[in-house]
Nucleic acid binder design. Structure first.
Length: 506
RNA sequence: CGGUGUGUAGCUCAGUUGGCAGGUAGCAUCCGACUUUUAAUCGGAGGGUCGUAGGUUCGAGUCCUACCACAUCGACCA
């Protein structure tokens, strides 16, 4: 391994620390009683006694190298300044800890534990007057040093030497998280998205479940799967592209409401909105329909938005989105009529193909009626749906798992929620008629025969479950990554995944 | 898969019509000074196979070709 100059320096320092009889990687726990952010928030300048604190983190900056130094310690909550005076940490004759360990052998990025009192310096910065200093873990690689300064004229924080190269940031996310606090914030918000949604569901009495990731038949969605092989069973298995069919089996089994947060895997293109593995939340509630589900989604999303951002209004790109319900509802046919002026509701396949041509939308022979309508919608309508909007009542051909519409011939009871021109939720009144479901699967097989390589496979065991009887049920899927992108105003999925998929490092 | 762009020190970046790679690089590093600093400062020093491999040329960071990685816009794809 080729070491850089700075890495050699740090390894030398490591050895010198050992030579001084100090363990650079001590085993004992270090008792932490305070955190940077909380210390600053709770500081009382009028208190009679200074607060004693014990804290730990990375040393990120050291200023001054005389007999007094100022350092910044970064813990999980932020940074706080340390006031390190030689005579404070070395009260006796032996000044080795300050002169050698602190001044010469300590590097940026090292973990240290400190004990001392909270006070304010002459310049007014809340700091810790260090009395005890202990090295907790030596860092052997130099971190990128990001410096910030508050511009006194504008009041804005200026960042110098930012660590911004996306490749380095994604490949070495641990470094990104250390030096870019705003990155950490995104992931904290992601966690809040999931937790607030989970607690909402739990309050309704629905149960979180887990279903197989390795599936013998990849059902529940239209997508190309990853295939693997089980050695002792000697059979192919697929990484799930959806968990829908398993969750419905659980409704058959008698649960009133089941939900799962989980990774899905699709062997398809990657771009700023697609990662090969992504997180979805699916929920199924018995005895409900898609109209009920719209209310539930509004309530849920509004609550998530408040939990994550503190309010219902969120800036997404240049648009201010208000997640407060109720949301606008528009049928798919009406939406196409509104944005193209064309009524496609009574058209057959040939007429639809002609419409596509007139709108300059490319088509091919594998596209059925449903797919053609979907193309028109995707090209002409989707981008206009900025504020949360339910698009309802989809053509039956596109949706083999949804129940036929209660009044409209040729449609199913389905809605998708669009925000800022992007779909973030998809829901149905679930198809529970086993004979109808079998016919729909068979229609999918016909589409597959026409060359639609993402048509759904027929799942006999799922049909058997439906034949035992499934109550009327409404189901919903939400793409957690995309919802998080919106609520954190990120345009790339890689910014909301800790470890986005990348090519192998060379 | 295609178009466009980027790749120079640990990090962030200059680098002209091809002429010794930055004594105008900054941070970081090393040596020294400094007992209230905050992008700390001051004095000195070191650090590079210019993404990789070829080619053109007396001479390539710079021009050409291929490849690799990333970004971006399309295609495909939820």
């Amino acid at each position: 391994m080729q070491l850089s100059e700075q890495e050699i320096v740090r390894r030398d320092a490591l050895q010198k620390i050992r030579d001084l009889g100090i363990n650079p990687y001590p085993a004992e726990q270090f008792n932490v009683t305070a955190f940077a952010q909380e210390i600053k928030e709770n500081y009382n300048p009028d208190a009679e006694e200074e607060r004693e604190v014990s804290m730990a983190g990375r040393v990120m900056i050291v200023r001054g190298k005389g007999k007094v130094s100022f350092a910044e310690l970064q813990d999980s909550t932020g940074r706080i300044q340390l006031f390190v005076k030689r005579d404070n940490i070395c009260p006796n004759e032996d000044k080795t800890l300050y002169d050698e360990v602190f001044k010469k052998l300590l590097d940026i990025g090292d973990f240290a534990g400190v004990k001392g009192e909270v006070f304010t310096t002459k310049t007014g910065e809340i700091s810790v007057r260090v009395k005890e200093f202990v090295l907790l873990s030596k860092s052997l690689k130099p971190l990128p040093i990001v410096k910030t300064r508050v511009n006194e004229e504008t009041g804005e924080t200026e960042v110098y030497d930012a660590f911004t190269d996306p490749e380095l940031r994604y490949r070495q996310r641990y470094v990104d998280l250390v030096v870019n606090p705003q990155v950490k914030e995104i992931f904290i918000k992601r966690s809040k998205v999931i937790n607030s949604m989970r607690s909402y569901f739990d309050e309704q009495g629905w149960m979180e479940v887990e279903t197989p990731i390795l599936q013998p038949i990849h059902g529940g969605a239209a997508a190309r799967p990853f295939q693997t092989h089980h050695n002792s069973l000697d059979m192919p298995l697929y990484l799930r592209i959806a968990n829908e069919l398993y969750l419905k089996r659980l409704i058959v089994g008698g649960f009133d409401g089941v939900y799962e947060f989980g990774k899905m895997f699709r062997n398809e293109g990657m771009d700023r909105t697609h990662n090969p593995e992504f997180t979805s939340m699916e929920i199924y509630v018995a005895y409900k329909d898609y109209i009920w589900m719209m209310k539930m989604v509004e309530e849920c999303i509004e609550r998530v938005a408040i939990a994550v951002t503190g309010g219902t209004k969120v800036m997404v790109g240049e648009n201010e989105i208000d997640f407060k319900g109720p949301y606008r509802k528009l049928s798919m046919y009406d939406s196409i009529k509104e944005y193209t002026g064309i009524d496609v509701s009574k058209m057959d396949e040939d007429a639809l193909r002609a419409v596509c041509k007139s709108l300059h939308i490319e088509t091919d022979n594998s596209m059925g009626k449903g797919k053609l309508i979907d193309e028109i919608f995707g090209e002409k309508v989707e981008d206009h749906l900025i504020q949360p909007t339910y698009i309802t009542d989809y053509p039956i051909e596109m949706t083999p798992l949804a129940k036929k519409h209660r009044t409209e011939e040729g449609l199913v009871e389905r809605f998708e929620l669009f925000v800022n021109g992007k779909e973030i939720a998809n829901a149905y009144s679930e198809l529970n008629d086993p004979i109808d479901q079998r016919e729909r699967f068979e229609d999918q097989l016909k589409l597959a025969a026409r060359g639609d390589d993402e048509a759904m496979a027929l799942d006999e065991d799922f049909l058997r479950a439906l034949e035992y009887g499934m109550p009327p049920t409404s189901g919903l899927g939400i793409g957690i990554d995309r919802l998080t992108m919106m609520l954190t105003n990120q345009s790339s999925i890689q910014e909301v995944l800790f470890f986005p998929q990348m090519k192998a490092e060379k």
